[in-house]
Design a protein around this nucleic acid. Structure first.
Lengths: 207, 207
DNA sequence: TGTACATCAGTGAACGCGCGTTCACTGATGTAC
DNA sequence: TGTACATCAGTGAACGCGCGTTCACTGATGTAC
């Protein structure tokens, strides 16, 4: 299983993973709509036709790249899902949002690919990866609402509002449209407790 | 000045406006990245080369289409800018957001074009149209903060938060990712007073 | 351990397409006299 | 009012490009005997 990156062999051995990796790399440097199958194959040092051994179409490849993004996000979220660790429900929910924005800023084109191409959602591998992330948002919102003693019926609206805020912030700040502050996020403090209509001190620091 | 829509004449007479109109029409039916200069020319009944009498490039045309979107939005906003009318500052600010979301839902592809292609921002006609809209958001936030008796320094963070919320909501609901409610927007009620840390009743109904 | 063979991940050339853009041109318009 | 002419908004053919995809193929791999 000794893989030598440099030696060009007839059988690449790891082509599918390499293509996905190359795609993610290219997305850190160029816009998501300028990803080409041929360019990807070239980057990996393989003929364009070879791609079709591993993906039925360019779209299927893109769907897997997008799914990969959701999987990375979901993995980062493991540290702040209910039942995982030190902080309280509200802190975990806030951390979810912070990681979301951090991901978008770290990989803007990847982020846009994940949310831009609605028609890619028909590939199950993407739909499922995305659903797993969205479910995490909802679960965390429910957890937060429960921990705050708020009626459960507010969990879904809270999830929508918080997710919208975070998603919009990610999108607009990437586009350079928001005012800046020294601290990074230039938002009113304590938005979440206000969503929850609880004075900040009630739920603060309960670890 | 009698323009007959149907009769094909050698000189179109109104080609630039017709091209922009055709573009907006096509955006209501197809994705923003499938707009082609040739397709547009065909839709208007003119050769592709004729487009270059009115736009130096396809990008310039797209920039004008995006600018047109901002201009439409700005025009709709005239009824709810400070100094215009019946409602209070907070109601006007909320109305801004509602019109923003309504625009996005009415013309998803146009909306995405306006915010998606950051590199189009180098066309002054677009940059200026966009800046006019963004300025309205900031002015309205400032107005709202002032009317609520909140320190002016919160105007910018409020504008960012409210705009992010609305933009994210528009984007995510277009993608079909949010939970739905009968009333349309499925969000916690009275988000804005909570942003402002004012009990709803203080600023409600002051017309 | 050595050979035959099925499997399948690769190759490279080609297809056909639609695209943005350029070019030399043509024909309608409007103004000067 | 009629003619000459400059202007310029159109035409249609062509260029060159990069794209996704297909095809007949080749060569490496691993398994059966």
């Amino acid at each position: 299983m000794a893989l030598e990156e440099d030696s060009p062999r007839y059988h690449h051995g790891n082509l599918k993973a390499s293509l996905l990796e190359a795609a993610v790399n290219q997305l850190s440097e160029q816009a998501e709509d300028s990803l080409s199958l041929r360019g990807l194959a070239k980057a990996v040092g393989v003929s364009a036709a070879a791609v079709y051994r591993h993906f039925p179409s360019k779209e299927a490849l893109l769907a897997e790249v997008a799914a990969d993004g959701f999987n990375r996000l979901h993995e980062q979220w493991q540290t702040c899902l209910p039942g995982s660790g030190t902080a309280g429900a509200r802190e975990r929910f806030e951390r979810l949002g912070q990681l979301y924005i951090a991901f978008a800023h770290a990989s803007p084109a990847h982020f846009r690919l994940m949310f831009g191409q609605t028609d890619l959602r028909r590939f199950p591998i993407l739909a499922e990866a995305a659903a797993r992330c969205f479910e995490s948002v909802r679960v965390s919102a429910l957890d937060t609402v429960a921990a705050a003693g708020v009626d459960k019926k507010w969990a879904a609206p809270l999830a929508n509002a918080a997710w919208s805020l975070v998603h919009g912030y990610a999108h607009l700040s990437l586009a350079g449209l928001l005012t800046r502050s020294e601290t990074g996020l230039h938002l009113p403090p304590d938005l979440l407790p206000r969503f929850l209509q609880i004075p900040p001190e009630v739920t603060a620091k309960k670890d």
